[in-house]
Each structure stands twice: as C-alpha cells, then as structure tokens.
Design a binder for these strands. Structure first.
Lengths: 148, 148
DNA sequence: TGTTGACTTCGAGCGCACTCGAAGGCGTAT
DNA sequence: ATACGCCTTCGAGTGCGCTCGAAGTCAACA
C-alpha cells in the first residue's frame, strides 16, 4: 500500500516547513500536488521529486535552474525536452566539477597553513563539521537553511 | 623595487571594484590600507592578503568568518590567536570536505541520469563550464560575482 | 458545536554580499 | 586654472531564498 502524507508530514519528512512547501509549489519548483477535499496529499512520486529537488539545491543549483528543469519535466518527455534536461544537468555537473577542483586546491593550501600554525602551537582541532567543538569561536550562523 | 598600486589598479588586478575594495576595508575584511596624501596605496602585502581573502570567499567561506580571521590576524601572533586561526581554517576545511563529498555523490547520480537521457536521445553536451554552448538554455545569471 | 488543520492571498521583512549614486572636499599633474 | 582621481559619508537598492504573519474560509473529526 502506497503512503500518503499531509503537508505537515511532508514537511517533517523533508525538513522543510509547510510554508516552504507551498512556496515551492507556487513558484513552480514542485508540480501542483494532488488534493483531497482541498488539502494537499503527498504521495511517493511527489516525495521523490521533492527529494531530488533538494539534492539539486544542496549542490548549489539555483532555484531558477531547478525551475527550468521542473518546467521541462512538466512539458513532457519529448526528445527535445529530454535532450534539454540532459544538457541542463550536464552543465550543472560540469560546473560542480569545477567547484570541486577549486575546493580541492584550496583545501590543500589551507592544510599547509594549518600545519604551519600547528607546528607553532599544539593540536586541538575539530575534524568533523557535524561535531562542532563544545567551546569555540561561533562560526557565524550561515547555517542558513533551517533544517537539513 | 616593490610595486605600489592605486585603488583603481588594485581593483583591476583583483577583479573587484574600487567601491568594493573600500567596502571590504570598511567592514574590516582588509586592514586599513596605507595612504599617501590621503589616497590608498596598495603594496605587495596588501595584495597578497586580498588575494587570500578572495580565495577563502571563492570557496564559500562567509564574510563573517573571514572577518573573524582578519581580526585575529590584526590582533597579532599570540599563541592563542595562532591556535584560533588554525582552528577556524581547519573547521572551514572540514566543512569543505563535507561539501566536496556531497558534490561528488550528486555528480555521480547526475551522471547516471544524464547517461539515461543520452541513451534515449543523442549526444551534444557542453563539457566545460568555461565554454558554454553557443546556443543554449540561458543558465540563470547566478554568476553573481561580477568579475572573477 | 467546536477545535484542528489545512486552505488562499497578500504583503512585509530578513540576512547576505554587494552595488550604486550623490554630495562635497582635497592634492597633484598639465 | 582646471581637470582628474581619489577621498569621505550616507543612504537606498538589488537579487536570492526564504520566512512569517494576518485574515478569512472550509472540511473533517469528536
């Protein structure tokens, strides 16, 4: 039996707010969600799509580009659209590969600098971004995405 | 002989605008630049620091965190400050490593999807982000940073 | 019947990182 | 003498991606 979620449940499942889910639908990031007596009902295809959208967003694709992709999807699987979607993703992948390279290079530079500092003064370094040190300089709240 | 640049030249060299250079100085991202009869004179240390700042920015470090780093630098090379700077960089590096991993994973997923599309319809894909296709869906102008 | 959850539309606000322009002044080079 | 480039301060505006709240409606459940 397939599962169906209310907007609240969908929000919980995705880490978004109900507000944001409606907002995404409104700006065309998400297809119009099926309603049952006026209320949105999120099924598996909807949730899968939302998760895909969040993955794209999570890798830095702009809302605009995700919108374009979503429009192409809505427009149906014509050969042309399939090609356009493929190109869009490929361009983003290429972009990401560039980012990745710059990140890698800068990490290397930073590591050198860190090692240098380290050699002047002891260890004591947080290794995981998920395990922030208990006492630390507060990294600014650019953890802007509420949940996630 | 060391080189000295006017603000205009420094702007040209960094790809920023004079406006932005003053802005960065104002918010403490850049130390007060030495003046000659009131006008900023950018020497090699200044340019090196600006370039370092831009590298950090380019890898997604927030202005706030760069500010913190700059403050520590200004505060002098006490063991404590050296440690704090090291930690800050290390935390950022760790963060980047996380990003990098997510990027890598999503690229893999995208590549699968692209291959799938490809198998339905021909080739024709831009490989480099620096060589956009001549005719294409306009990727939205999230090339927000003016130059660079 | 009343509470709950959801619905709609609207409009304001926020944090980030700029970006621009105006106004008025100063120093140096031609 | 005048033009040029720079200075300062100020304040407003931009684009992104939300985020929130208010107001009023409606349907299902107990």
């Amino acid at each position: 039996m397939p599962t169906f979620l209310s907007i609240r449940e969908a929000a919980l499942a995705t880490g978004l707010t109900a507000h944001t889910l409606r907002y995404y639908e409104q700006i065309g990031l998400i297809d119009p969600v099926p309603r049952r007596s006026g209320q949105r009902v999120y099924g598996e295809p909807e949730m899968a799509w939302i998760e895909f959208v969040l993955r794209l967003r999570g890798t830095g694709m702009s809302m605009r580009d995700i919108q374009v992709y979503a429009e192409l999807r809505r427009a149906g699987e014509t050969p042309e659209n399939v090609r356009l979607k493929g190109d869009l993703l490929a361009r983003h992948a290429a972009h990401m590969r560039g980012e990745l390279q710059r990140l890698t290079e800068t990490i290397a530079r930073l590591d050198e600098k860190i090692a240098l500092y380290r050699s002047f003064y002891g260890q004591s370094v947080p290794e995981s971004p998920e395990e922030p040190p208990v006492v630390a300089i507060p990294l600014s709240p650019s953890n802007r995405r509420r949940h996630a």
